[in-house]
């Protein structure tokens, strides 16, 4: 459980960090995924650039009708931010489900998003929130939708030398209800499945529905088929159930020591329905 030797830099500015990354160094933020892999010598980076301490990446602020969150913000900060709790409670609720308090105190939003673990919690919420991911390198900055960003298992649109620098989530109107529901893997605390729902209703009908799912397959995804099945429909539990039952369609459900593909697919439906119901109960 001892890492290979490596070089460590802790630059004082983002610019400096990006320059080092452009030379091929790997970024280190909270280290909650990377460091254990290094200790097992499964990951052996030669040069780590610590971006977890950069003040430039550490903020949560409201700007132009959206909330901008620096990549270096920890899960605990997301979970406990008054701004997020008030204006984007889904992200705070999701963060509270991550790992344990030690992990949440060190792990960062940007680190988790860039890692793109297929069982991580954030992707579900970010898909449901129509979030934007801001990518930065020494060459400049670009902004992607979640579907453009999360490509596959541990695979994102990040280019070498590029980091996730910011996540942008909407300020939801007071009428929107959201919820994240998670079935925990008992050993790791990762999601066997997690479902995030964001809904609006008017006159007894669904007017907006977003569903994001994690854990079921190799990549978190936005369940557009569930959304389409609900929008414009009456707000009834039968409709929720029927729509949630579609959530695993077209997904190649994963199977491991902790859940078979069949069980995961079933749970995805059950937890999507739970998330939708809870979100609904929180929408005006």
């Amino acid at each position: 459980m001892i890492a290979n030797s490596f070089e460590y830099s802790a630059p004082g500015s983002l610019k400096e960090a990006l320059a080092l990354l452009a030379e091929g160094a790997k970024p280190l933020a909270g280290g909650m995924s990377l460091i254990p892999m290094m200790k097992l010598r499964l990951a052996n980076p030669e040069h780590l650039v610590d971006i977890g301490r950069l003040p430039e990446l550490n903020y949560i602020r409201e700007e132009g009708g959206a909330i901008h969150i620096g990549a270096g913000v920890t899960h605990f900060e997301v979970e406990s931010s008054p701004l997020l709790l008030g204006k984007c409670p889904l992200l705070a609720e999701t963060a509270a489900y991550i790992g344990d308090i030690q992990v949440r105190n060190r792990g960062t939003l940007g680190g988790s998003v860039a890692h793109a673990d297929p069982s991580a919690d954030y992707p579900a919420a970010l898909h449901a929130l129509d979030a934007k991911i801001v990518l930065t390198s020494s060459e400049g900055t670009r902004t992607l939708s979640t579907e453009e960003f999360f490509l596959d298992t541990f695979t994102t649109a990040l280019d070498p030398g590029e980091i996730v620098s910011e996540v942008i989530v909407p300020v939801d109107a007071g009428l929107t209800g959201t919820s994240y529901q998670k079935f925990l893997q008992p050993a790791s605390g990762f999601a066997i499945v997690g479902a995030a729902a964001r809904v609006r209703q008017e006159g007894g009908k669904f007017t907006m529905v977003r569903v994001g799912v994690t854990g079921l397959s190799g990549n978190g995804y936005r369940a557009r088929n569930v959304e389409d099945a609900l929008v414009g429909q009456d707000v009834t539990d039968a409709n929720i159930k029927a729509a949630a039952a579609l959530v695993a369609d077209g997904q190649d459900a994963s199977s491991d020591l902790h859940a078979t593909a069949e069980y995961r697919a079933h749970l995805a439906g059950a937890y999507t329905a739970r998330a939708l119901r809870a979100a609904l109960s929180r929408s005006a």
């Binding site: 344990d100 893997q185 008992p186 050993a187 790791s188 990762f190 020591l257 902790h258």
Partner: peptide
């Protein structure tokens, strides 16, 4: 040993 770490071996919390 496929339950070889606490990621896969579920100790009660």
């Amino acid at each position: 040993l496929v339950s070889g770490t606490f990621m896969d071996y579920a100790m009660p919390r």
